[in-house]
Design a binder for these strands. Sequence first.
RNA 1: CGGAGCGUGGUGUAACGGCUAACAUUCCUGUUUUGGGAACAGGCGACUCCGGGUUCGAAUCCCGGCGCUCCGACCA
Length: 413
Amino acid sequence: MRQSKLFTKTRREAPKDEVAKNAQLLIRAGFISKEIAGVYSFLPLGLRTLNKIVNIIREEMNNIGGQEVQLTAFQDKKNWEATGRWDDKEIGIWFKTKLNNGGEIGLAFTHEEPLTALMRDQVRSFRDLPVSVYQFQTKFRNEERAKSGILRGREFLMKDLYSFNPDEKAHQDFYEKAKEAYRRIFDRLGIGGDTYVTFASGGSFSKYSHEFQTVSEAGEDTIFVHESKKIAVNKEVLNDEVLKDLGITRSDLAEKKAIEVGNIFSLGTKFSAALGLNFKDAEGKSKPVIMGSYGIGPSRVMGTIAEIWSDDKGLVWPESVAPFAVHLIALFDAEGNVKKATDELYERMIKSNVEVLYDDRDATVGEKFSDSDLIGIPIRIVISVKTLKDNSVETKDRKTGKIEMEKIQNLRF
RNA sequence: CGGAGCGUGGUGUAACGGCUAACAUUCCUGUUUUGGGAACAGGCGACUCCGGGUUCGAAUCCCGGCGCUCCGACCA
């Protein structure tokens, strides 16, 4: 894409009402725009990155057999009354509204109830199991206090997968597969090294749930990290019993702030029993389905990456989620030689399906370089009078700062 | 929801109760410039968040609302 056509602009300064680093950088670089507190819009660069995150998650969910759907955000009150979660006293974060015909609907903050109800029509026999279903969906949570930029919004994107299994063993097998898939996802997203499988409170059907916590000062959670085992314990459940279960001692643990980027949770029969999602086993006996839920917030992940991968000049995207692979920068000369050479290279890259952002703006050198650092595309390629003397370009790695000269004809595209 | 702070051109800031609300940046015009947010000249852009009040006079003081931020509580 030609940067001269990109409608978003970079800014020198962040709006003063943004304090969170992720929001400051993403707004300054033109990735997102704030609508109201906790509600952000995604602009072209931001949407590209968000979609890359989504696609990585999608691939890994498909790998473990997940089937993608898209449920509606509108919620039928009767499904939620069945589980006791319609009442505002139970769930304080509902957005609800009246229908003109007198009814009442809610906007989903999660989807256990509607999907369980939907599966009732599909699952009858043990032959229909196991099955797992997921979606990328906008969730609405009427948080009393939005904070931390896109880390905690009132509207946010979430991947939620729900598993349906005939028995506890099959459930556990899938649960472990999902855990492994999550590890791969965070590795591919570039935050695997800082992300710990964290033991957290399990609720009534399992002793523990597992959170995926990325160590960052911007996080809201406090976890205790066991570095060599690459696991952690959420402060909420840190006690002697947990330490014994995990075979670790308190002195091995280091206290850290962390962002919860994902979690997986055994639901047992809580929802299937309440909503009547039963199946006939091989003996013809009716049993409730065993369920699990598995969430990741792609928009929160994007904010987390911005927190972790950034420096004083701007964002430093991992290749896997960068809005473009290459930032091509032309430092024009009066004769037009640089423009001609850069246009040619740009066309070549487009033909080779390289995702390239071409800074063809009539801007000064300093502005182009500053914007490039701010936007944080992994590889910067500069063409100028200087490089053309040698028929070369200069490449610079955003992360390492390493600069190399390369002959134009030797470029890999 | 408890506590604290803040609302001034697009953005960031300034202005004792008193001149035409100032400065920087962005943006527009032109000239020059092209390896780190470049120079010069000219120009556009604000009912000072909204509504009331005090005063000869309000961006400034008072009351109410709305919004934003921070700390805490909350966060299947």
